[in-house]
Design a protein around this nucleic acid. Structure first.
Length: 592
RNA sequence: GGUCCCGUAGCUCAGUUGGAUAGAGCAACAGAUUUCUAAUCUGUGGGUCGUGGGUUCGAAUCCCUCCGGGAUCACCA
């Protein structure tokens, strides 16, 4: 039982015995007392006035008195206007501190028996990953981590979009202009190489359109009739028919891309339990179309295409099967969702996908529930906003796209420069230094992105992201390293952290309070979604610690009992910092 | 035009199920000290929480209006 739950129960008891009737729910909601007042938790008296039939001040006084009488853990109380501030005894906090320090894996929850699927990343295989994908990957990975910490069984899946006209574009351009270039022959990373030909296609396509327009064609005609586009469409048809030459080329070029992606994923530190390929799943969903027609949820138009009418729900009519009988994106997604449910019986399925697909997921859920699938509610679209740059949006045409690999390398370089400038790592071996630079560079990037509410459009300012002060990853990493340094020194002196029963001071109590909130914070982040909750919590703890650290001595403390107890506090804080950062996919160094 | 999302300090962002005088960081200025790791800490200035209404003991938070920004409304994925 948490401290808050304990107090809430006591409060209910007090109100019950005082007024002879159960307390209204709203009166039992506690909140942390604001700094400027004395106390740990605050209860509002307003919802209670009807029951007590007295003024807020009188009610608060009565409840406070009763609480103190029945419960020795309540040290004191005060009433300000309608707010009852309750101060708990330091003994209680000491006991709570003990509980925390004796809980292995503190913060993580027991197995819940729930299964959650998290789909994220889902890249196209025609170009390398960029900043937008970085946000996706970091969110997906962190959310999965947080769900695991909530005790759920998590299955991380990646659905690779490896087929379609856009893939054919890079293939075609490579055939035309590639001269047999390979990652090996060019020394380029596979995904970048393929991306280069995607750009080459676009360039040629534009050139041809300009030519056609010069001959008097309209924009639309030019776009449709450009020979290179016709060729790409022909290539897609051949691919669908299984043309050996095309399929071989497709395999080869995709394998280059996968090799490139693997490197990027590994650098980012993200991973998947299962990878689906759209080339295997794009025919899914026909079964669902049959079913929908039978149930009368879908209807067929004269040309043979199948639709669902969602106008009654404020949406449009949506196509589910083309007149030529092939399935569209929605159909595929319906099919894969159904297949996954049959296989895993997930309790929740989270899709980490950009907010440009909000409409798609709204429709997806609606269609599933109209088909009578109760698990439609289990689908959750974790929608995130775009990442913008100080110059504005990223536009591939204008070459303002921030490449993921470049970005990561840049962060690591900056971490290196900053660290060397501070000149603290002189006796650290080179390979360990390199490891540290990667940890710090990545930590800065990840934290910068994850601390922002996912649904908001965020601004990525490269200059600011490499700032290592304030609410940043490196600040927290540094805090951890400092604590570890003290603990190492203590260990050398044979000092063991332990609870010696010395009363905690104010600052220590507020640190214990923060530690006490950790499990609840994880739960909140797990049910509400955003890693930002965890990030901001971690910063708060690190900041609070730095203040404490600044005006208290640990190793120099003459009182042995006090010293070892403070070491225990440090140890617990380091542990929580590490666990919390781990939930964000961020590693934390022993020294830096 | 329909639907959805966003709007909080000069900038980037927090703000618990509606609670007390709206908080951090950056930037600016003023200080602490060279340690138990200063990649730190303390202080100052900076706000009509986009606008106008409503709900109530109480609104940045919930409802409506309008303004501004974004996304989306394909037999693309």
């Amino acid at each position: 039982m948490t401290v808050e739950q304990f107090l809430s129960t006591e409060l209910a008891k007090a109100i019950g015995s005082l007024y002879g009737q159960p307390a209204p729910e709203a009166a039992l909601q506690l909140q942390a007392t604001r700094k400027e007042f004395e106390g740990d938790y605050t209860a509002m008296m307003f919802p209670l006035l009807k029951t007590s039939r007295k003024s807020p001040e009188q009610t608060g006084d009565e409840v406070g008195k009763q609480l103190q009488a029945q419960c020795p853990e309540v040290a004191s109380y005060n009433v300000v206007k309608g707010f009852l501030n309750i101060k708990l005894s330091p003994v209680l906090w000491l006991k709570q501190f003990e509980t925390i320090s004796k809980t292995p894996g503190y913060g993580r929850h027991a197995p819940s028996g729930r299964t959650v699927m998290v789909e994220y990343s889902s890249p196209n295989t025609n170009k390398p990953l960029h900043l937008g994908h970085v946000r996706n990957n970091l969110l997906g990975y962190s959310v999965a981590k947080i769900l695991e910490a909530n005790g759920h069984t998590v299955i991380k899946v990646n659905l690779v979009n490896d087929r379609g006209i856009h893939i054919c574009k890079s293939m075609l351009a490579w055939q035309k202009f590639g001269n047999g270039e390979t990652p090996d022959s060019s020394g380029m990373k596979g995904d970048h190489l393929v991306g280069k030909y995607y750009v080459a296609f676009d360039k040629e396509y534009k050139k041809q359109q300009t030519e056609l327009k010069a001959q008097g064609k309209t924009d639309e005609e030019a776009a449709k009739q450009a020979p290179i586009m016709l060729e790409a469409q022909e290539m897609l048809r051949k691919w669908e028919q299984g043309d050996k030459e095309i399929v071989d080329l497709w395999r080869t070029m995709n394998s280059w891309v996968y090799a490139g992606f693997d490197v990027t994923y590994q650098k980012m530190g993200v991973a998947f339990d299962k990878t689906y390929y759209e080339s295997n799943t794009y025919l899914f969903g026909k079964k669902i179309v049959e079913e929908g027609l039978q149930k009368g949820v879908f209807f067929r138009k004269d040309d043979g295409s199948v639709w669902i009418d969602l106008t009654a729900d404020g949406l449009d009519q949506k196509l589910l099967l083309r007149s030529d009988g092939t399935s569209v994106y929605m159909t595929q997604d319906l099919g894969t969702a159904q297949q996954r449910y049959e296989k895993y019986h997930f309790d929740e399925h989270i899709y980490v996908v950009g907010n440009e697909q909000n409409y798609h997921f709204q429709v997806l859920k609606l269609v599933l529930s109209k088909l009578g699938y109760t698990w439609a509610d289990a689908i959750y679209h974790l929608s995130y906003g775009m990442v913008e740059l100080p110059e504005g949006k990223m536009k591939s045409r204008e070459g303002t796209v921030v490449d993921a690999d470049d970005l990561i390398d840049g962060m690591i370089d900056t971490a290196r420069e900053t660290s060397l400038e501070l000149g603290k790592l002189n006796e650290m071996p080179d390979d360990e230094q390199q490891q540290l630079f990667e940890m710090v560079g990545l930590g800065a990037l990840k934290y910068f992105i994850l601390k922002v509410d996912p649904k908001k459009t965020m601004l990525f300012d490269p200059r600011e992201s490499i700032d290592f002060n304030g609410n940043t990853g490196p600040f927290i990493q540094y805090t951890h390293a400092r604590i570890k340094s003290v603990l190492r020194k203590a260990d050398e002196q044979d000092l063991k952290p332990k609870l010696s029963g010395v009363t905690l001071n104010e600052k220590e109590i507020s640190l214990v309070k923060l530690l006490n909130n950790f499990p609840e914070k994880i739960r909140e982040a797990g049910s509400e979604h955003p890693p930002a909750l965890v990030a901001n919590y971690t910063y708060e703890l690190a900041k609070e610690f730095n203040q404490y650290y600044h005006d208290v001595s640990i190793l120099k403390e003459p009182d042995e009992a006090l010293k070892t107890q403070r070491l225990l506090l440090l140890q617990q804080i380091a542990g929580v910092l590490k666990t919390a950062m781990n939930l964000l996919g961020i590693e934390v160094p022993e020294r830096m």
